[in-house]
Design a protein around this nucleic acid. Structure first.
Length: 298
DNA sequence: TGCCAGGTAAACA
DNA sequence: TGTTTACATGGC
């Protein structure tokens, strides 16, 4: 099955690829020759997608390379849905770019990365796990931890001599012990947090739908920070990349601080109070501002 | 080698 | 309600 998804508005496949290739140790998709290969879950089954773009950035081209079932029209709709969500294709960036034109921090950045979207993490469990794993460690090690976790507990298929993984199911992680995860060099606390979150989701006490139903970003944040291991940073990270609230704002993020320090050519990181002032005009676009600023770091 | 990393919970004032 | 500290461990 092949699918062409038209893209409207500001979109640059190359800029999005720039984000997706930031680590050479990513295990949830592979990139080769300007094409993304990713195994996605689909109604209890799975399908391996290859995603590319035509030269004019007017559409995304999807080829279904391998699947555990015969694809029908409903599957086709789900695949389109998945890719549109991943690349945030429904978002009109015009108001963000208008705002950024008059923002000293963002003006050059949006020019440089024009057409970049917030790449999503559709699965709530994956987004929470990635947030927890990444807490207070460098990204290189975070990617190593994620790879170990996914290779240890995620299902995979082999295709063209390469393994393609699905993220582990919460049901399986919920049944693990702290010792199991410590073996991957996760800390005691992170192991506890991951198992706890897995249990919440496996038991149906935490769902993406429930968080979306909370309505606004702040209400969902309140629910998330009730969970042990989820502080304001992780909550906002998940709100930004999974629930797709454009006003999510991980203001404590070290990467954000370093990007601002760099752009201001300062010899120190900004204080939270200074960031509040600098971001005063970002209202409702904090997530996009943050994502673009992160891009300055690599 | 020592500081730092896409923080959080718990203790404390 | 707001601030300080312990936690752990790889990367550079």
């Amino acid at each position: 099955m092949e699918i062409e998804i038209p893209v409207r508005g500001a979109f640059s496949f190359a800029e999005n690829m720039g984000y997706l290739t930031r680590s050479t140790n990513e295990c949830m998709y592979q990139i080769d020759n300007h094409k993304i290969t990713k195994l996605i879950p689909l109604q209890g089954e799975h399908v391996l997608l290859e995603i590319s773009s035509n030269d004019s950035n007017k559409s995304l081209l999807i080829t279904c390379m391998a699947s555990s079932m015969t694809l029908n029209e409903q599957h086709r709709a789900s695949i389109i849905n998945y890719v549109e969500d991943w690349f945030d294709l429904e978002r009109d960036l015009t108001p963000f770019y208008d705002m950024a034109q008059n923002d000293p921090l963002l003006r050059e950045v949006v020019k440089r990365f024009y057409g970049l979207r917030i790449l999503g993490i559709s699965d709530l469990f994956e987004a929470l796990c990635w947030g927890i794993m990444g807490q207070q460690i460098n990204l290189t090690f975070a990617y190593t931890l994620k790879r170990r976790f996914v290779e240890a507990y995620g299902k995979h298929i082999e295709w063209n001599g390469q393994n393609h993984y699905l993220f582990p199911e919460p049901q399986q992680i919920a049944a693990l012990t702290v010792e199991d995860l410590r073996a991957l060099q996760l800390t005691n606390k992170k192991s506890e947090y991951l198992i706890g979150v897995a249990q919440l989701i496996a038991d149906g006490r935490l769902t993406k739908e429930q968080l979306l139903a909370a309505g606004d970003c702040k209400s969902a944040e309140k629910q998330l920070v009730q969970i042990r291991g989820i502080g304001p940073w992780t909550a906002n990270y998940v709100l930004m990349r999974c629930l797709r609230h454009s006003s999510a704002f991980p203001i404590d993020d070290v990467g954000l601080h370093l990007a601002i320090k760099h752009l201001l050519d300062s010899d120190r990181k900004p204080t939270i109070s200074e960031i509040r002032q600098l971001s005063a005009n970002w209202s409702d676009w904090e997530a996009y501002a943050t994502f673009y600023l992160w891009r300055c770091l690599y």
